[in-house]
Nucleic acid binder design. Structure first.
Lengths: 156, 156
DNA sequence: AACAGTGCGCGAGGTGCTTGCATATCGTCG
DNA sequence: CGACGATATGCAAGCACCTCGCGCACTGTT
């Protein structure tokens, strides 16, 4: 059961709060050891899946964020599987989800600039199998970047 | 200048590689101290912006991932600003971007289930100012979750 | 009222981070 | 062609932090 302290811990950890457990404990009103124990429990419960570095995409030259909506020519099991494994094989495709509605896939890719997106378009997107239609939308500006999920009260 | 070792480090760190710098160093062929120094340099350069815990949304009861496309009634500066600050004020709105095309915003929200999305719809989305049209698409399945950017050679 | 069960703080021991120093490597300039 | 300067590395010591066992407080149960 997740209580108020766990929620605050998860919130801090998702937002890149202080690493030393002593400071985390101080922030939530716990000793370092108790705080650390709770974090380990959250990890063991599979709630915290890992710790990752967050990068500034523009600092590594990835200034362009593009959503690509794709519909397939066939909805057969084989077509879906082939498409999905091709998607997974390209590092430039950051994420991909199957959406409700017109049985579309939506993926997100990162490119250095428009010319680089053209390269991606030819090198990756055009090689995805079974594509009937493709529509790209460029992100002009990020109003809110992902910084973690809100943690609802009392779960798990 | 980012060389091959930095790229490998960034790749490992984005994917939640081993925390001890000694193991990281072994993975890239460096001693622990040299490896640690490079990481600090990447942080100082603003390439690594922080370290965050990654959570399993379904483990905290957030089983539903929804994209919401929104167009506004007015494109005036005030309308955009009002809309964007309202977006930022809701924790349930995970991300938001302004897209090219029909001057649409796209946001992503997480909900516990369909009923909870209805609550979000009434509690958050309906309170966003200046909305002309809204269209939601549910993520049926995640083929590829975000696990970090590919790091192009020789940047910064 | 006594008793498990849970979760806390404290403290010792071990691990990993952090930094100074000497050295190797590479590019540059005399 | 040789020497110098800059950069990056490895090593080792000092230190901060994590980790875990222990005893205690609190809660709910019988």
């Amino acid at each position: 059961m997740i209580d108020r302290i766990d929620r605050k811990l998860l919130d801090l950890l998702q937002r890149g709060g202080p690493r030393p457990a002593a400071e985390l404990g101080e922030a939530v009103g716990l000793s370092a050891s108790a705080c650390h124990r709770r974090i380990r429990a959250l990890e063991a419960a599979g709630i915290i899946t890992g710790y990752t570095a967050r990068l500034a995409p523009e600092r590594i030259g990835l200034g362009l964020d593009v959503f690509v909506d794709i519909s397939l020519t066939s909805q057969s099991e084989e077509a879906l599987t082939a498409f999905e494994s091709a998607v997974k094989s390209f590092d430039e495709i950051l994420e991909c989800q199957l959406l409700s509605g017109a049985s579309d896939y939506r993926l997100r890719v990162a490119a250095r600039n428009v010319a680089d997106f053209d390269r991606l378009h030819r090198h990756c997107l055009s090689r995805l199998p079974g594509v009937a239609a493709m529509h790209s939308a460029f992100a002009l500006r990020t109003i809110k970047a992902f910084e973690g999920y809100p943690v609802p009260a009392g779960e798990a």
